[in-house]
Write a protein that binds this DNA or RNA. Structure first.
Lengths: 125, 125
DNA sequence: AGGGTGCTTTACGCAAACGTCAGAGGAACG
DNA sequence: CGTTCCTCTGACGTTTGCGTAAAGCACCCT
């Protein structure tokens, strides 16, 4: 997959892909000069974009991506991985709770709006 | 509530509070020169910080805050409010789905890590 | 009156995450 | 062979979200 195909598939610019690569979030193969993206890269990009939607910085995302790289690891790395993973998990779960609360509040607000709209134009039945 | 008390209560800097005000996210009273924050401002700041954790820009947060301002509204404003609210709600719900997925994946990863750690140091039982 | 503390505005600085050229290098096509 | 098209690598520009002085009031203390 070329950089163009990749960028169109995920709706990001080629510039962004090169930028992520410069930050070690992606590492496509090279045929001569050109980049070639594999399934692995697509998986990573998916995680990158998702992380961004959650408000994570690229640096934080890199930490997570590194977590998903099953290379040879020593004991210290494993321990560190557990730590990071647990921390991140706690973070995500608290974010989930907040998100639920936010959704509930927004629902109330929206109900008020729709009620007002109905009152304003009662002919619409 | 002074700016200092406010900043300490929410763990943000006074600079950030003034910045939010300059972007019309907050609008504390003034006694002479000094800012005074009320309950309303505290509510808004809570929403601001929460929005930030979800990865929203200050501009997007402002849209939501405006939604929560129950002033006099004409029909057009009500309709617009419904639109924004529904859109934002859909966004949040899709984010929630993604978040659930992410948590599930991270749990799997973490289980792998803990398994490896155990294998590495089986004496720890 | 002088000094300290805390608030104000104004202004410049800075990192993150790209956007936007500029210039060069293949490959493909007629 | 020239032209077009895509790609590459810098390099500088831009926006967001504040941080960090600089300079000025206001009040309090002694």
């Amino acid at each position: 997959m070329t950089i163009r195909e990749m960028s169109e598939a995920f709706e990001v610019t080629p510039r962004a892909l090169r930028f992520y690569e410069s930050k070690a979030l992606l590492a496509p193969y090279r045929t001569g000069q050109k980049r070639l993206y594999t399934k692995r890269d697509r998986g990573r990009l998916k995680l990158i974009l998702r992380g961004k939607r959650f408000g994570l910085s690229l640096e934080e995302i890199r930490e997570i991506l590194d977590l998903y790289d099953r290379g040879s690891r020593n004991e210290a790395q494993l321990k560190r991985g557990c730590e990071i993973g647990r921390k991140r998990l706690a973070q995500l779960e608290s974010q989930r709770a907040e998100l639920d609360e936010t959704i509930a509040e927004l629902r109330v607000e929206l109900a008020w709006f729709e009620d007002q709209s109905a009152r304003h134009r009662p002919a619409a039945k």
